[in-house]
Computed example of a mutant assay.
Amino acid sequence: MVEQTDTTGVNTQLRRRLGNSDLELSPLGLGCWQFSKGSGMVGKFWPVLADEDILGIVRTSLEGGINWFDTAEVYGGGKSEEALADALNSLGNAASGAHVATKWWPIMRTAGSIPRTIDERLRRLKGWPIDLHQVHQPYSFSSAAAEMNEMAKLVQQGKIRHVGVSNFSAARMREADKALRAHGLRLTSNQVKYNLLDRRIEHNGVLDTAKELGVAIIAYSPLEQGVLTGKFHSNPELVRGIAAGRKLSGSFKPAALARTRPLVDRLAELAGKYGASPSQVALNWLIHANGDTVFAIPGASKPRHAQENVHAMAFKLSSDELQELAVLADRCKR
């Protein structure tokens, strides 16, 4: 892990190698699901963002040291990819060096759809190369090996640089990495849900396997749909205003909020110590609790949310604090 400073003296935050790749990325990227423009069933999870807001979010992220963006085919059927590309292109030199990760949607498809859809991904990204192409889910009509064989061909053709997966089990990660090794490649990353309140990957073999294989973990939902910000503990009435899909999470129920309050209160105390916010402390735990293995992709629907994200990289919790938060999080399950 290295720290860099740009020519103006502005700290561009930490950079770390993404798994087995040669990509040097910030520990936090920007998740771009919310750029879906309300298109498709998945895109309706978020309100429609204006182009100027998307531009402001991307600009703020870049200025704060974030140098990569995660999108997907299924996010608005390509609308998120387009919106991200438009923002990056509008920023010109300010976006120089930015990296883009996207994902192929496998459900109800075979591996043969990977090469058939890649040109559409590139078209939507409007000249931005695909530094990381990921299989979005483990469910398709093909094996992980078959999917990796098609991904390897895209690397060889120069259409993508690196291969990742998402929501893969430990066993399926091994299958994917083995298939890529036959082509002289390695699996780069596994994108999974991971945060202080959802640490399943620590117990189901996924995190251990990632460390063994040198695979990066990319954590989505790093704030448990906003629960770790503490705002719903401070004002439970806010739960009424969230989208119906988010309400399905048991984390918003009164009993769950009561159970997680000690953790959120400690996040607030540490936030005071570091001149940060509870959400920034939760993100800081995520990117430091497992060395350089874990990256995270918080979203942002306003430029101020992006500013909130980037400050999470401006400090580092002590080893004792990292452990303390893990213990408090474990108690939330009881």
Rank of each mutant, 00 (worst) to 15 (best):
S96I: 02
I201N: 03
G40H: 10
W105H: 09
R174E: 12
A271T: 13
Q280P: 04
G184P: 12
G184W: 06
Q191M: 06
L270E: 00
T7Y: 14
K44Y: 02
L14K: 11
Q134N: 06
D22N: 14
V58I: 12
L125V: 07
R15L: 06
P129W: 11
W104R: 04
L248G: 14
A182L: 06
Y220R: 15
F295S: 04
R116W: 04
E73M: 07
G127T: 07
L267Q: 10
I297C: 03
S61W: 06
D292H: 08
L187N: 12
Y220K: 11
L263R: 13
V227R: 09
A329M: 00
K273Y: 07
G97V: 11
G56F: 03
L14Y: 03
R124L: 09
K302E: 14
L91Q: 14
E147D: 02
P298C: 05
K44A: 03
D119Y: 10
A83F: 02
R246S: 15
S140M: 09
A72M: 08
L283F: 03
K231N: 06
K302G: 00
L196N: 07
G76Q: 11
V310E: 03
Q156T: 14
K178D: 13
A296F: 05
L322E: 01
E212Q: 05
E321N: 01
G76S: 15
W285R: 02
R172K: 14
E3T: 07
A300S: 13
L286Y: 10
T60W: 13
L228R: 03
K37L: 10
V42T: 02
L213V: 04
S166E: 04
D22M: 13
P138M: 14
P278K: 00
G226M: 03
G78D: 10
A282H: 08
C32P: 11
G226R: 09
S318G: 12
S26T: 04
P138Q: 15
E3P: 09
T5H: 09
A312S: 07
A101Y: 13
A87S: 11
V264K: 00
P106A: 01
V42Y: 03
V48M: 12
E147N: 08
G250N: 05
K193Q: 09
A144F: 07
H162P: 08
A72F: 03
N89V: 05
E308P: 03
L14E: 13
W46E: 04
R246C: 10
H233G: 03
W33E: 13
R181F: 02
A219H: 04
T12R: 07
L267T: 03
S96N: 06
T260A: 10
F295I: 01
S96M: 02
V327N: 12
F69S: 06
V100Q: 13
P298K: 08
L197S: 09
I54V: 15
V135Q: 09
A210C: 14
S26W: 04
V281S: 10
L185D: 11
E24G: 04
G65N: 09
D177S: 04
K316T: 11
T229A: 02
A210D: 06
S189W: 15
R172Y: 06
G76I: 09
V327W: 01
K333P: 00
C332Q: 11
R240Y: 02
S96E: 07
